[in-house]
Design a protein around this nucleic acid. Structure first.
Ligand SMILES: [Zn+2]
Ligand SMILES: [Zn+2]
Ligand SMILES: [Zn+2]
Ligand SMILES: [Zn+2]
Lengths: 143, 143
DNA sequence: GCTCCTATTGATAATGATTCTCATTATTGT
DNA sequence: ACAATAATGAGAATCATTATCAATAGGAGC
């Protein structure tokens, strides 16, 4: 996981400015992995009601380009974001929306290299039903 | 891989009709894995110029619901389709667009079950640069 | 094969996510 | 503090996908 405290320096190193909006969005992403753009926007407005949705998308794109954050679909048709971290599998419950991060049980880079492939980014997801939801239907959040 | 020849029976078994459009789209998907909706639409028009884009999307949704086909992002922000088959990893070259199917090197269902998770569908992808593109820039298709 | 019932289709409007445009604002170097 | 200009906010524009609805065509029964 990238150190939040090093981000201002990281941005300046890339010739980018350190704005209050970028600091706020980074804080939200660090504290709440797997949110989508709209959810991040809503939380951001709670702190700074003047922030615009375009800024959220622009910032997400910038941070993803810098490999500071990663995006993934998580079983839906739009992106969800989290700070970049070691390769992991997302177990996504289609009933309650819960997302569990689990380390990948093999060496991904080596796996690609063995096929003459230089992996830059990985997305592993398993969509299904979690314990709670299988036991008691509607047991989780999303009914 | 699901047998193309059994599809008409499969559709009827689900109470669905076997239309010329569905037959055509299935043929295209079987023959060309990993196409997106627009690409499938273009190929379909080549055979039946009267087919509509809505029919393509409706049919893709139906076939995916029946678990006849699977969708995946393949590093882009929209869906690509292929006949349902055993779990596999997609190695996607971001330079030339090439997609390679490789078997998953571990038991996915067991992996999920071990975490109390009942996996219904998997999406594994590795985005990076293929042999050809690393050797000779612009060596592949998409320059 | 012919007819009827209704699922399916085609055209297009509508929606949702994301990107673009441009005037205004705010960060950074001096 | 000041100037230069990158970043923001608001809204238009674009792209992928879904919904609507009148017209069409599978397919069960005759
Ligand atoms: Zn659940
Ligand atoms: Zn995660
Ligand atoms: Zn390539
Ligand atoms: Zn594949």
């Amino acid at each position: 996981m990238i150190d939040r405290a090093s981000m201002p320096a990281r941005l300046r190193a890339e010739g980018k400015r350190v704005t209050r909006e970028r600091e706020l969005l980074l804080d939200i992403i660090v504290a709440n992995p797997h949110l989508d753009a709209t959810e991040i926007f809503e939380r951001a407005r709670g702190v700074n009601p003047r922030i615009g949705l375009a800024t959220v998308y622009r910032t997400l794109r910038l941070l993803e380009t810098l490999a500071v954050i990663d995006s993934s679909g998580l079983g839906e048709d739009h992106s969800h974001y989290e700070m970049h971290q070691k390769d992991h599998v997302h177990l996504v419950c289609s009933e309650c929306g819960a997302v569990l991060d689990v380390p990948v049980p093999f060496d991904v880079r080596a796996f690609g290299r063995r096929r003459g492939f230089d992996a830059r980014l990985t997305r592993f997801e398993l969509v299904g039903v979690c314990d709670a939801c299988r036991a008691e239907p509607h047991g989780g959040r999303r009914p």
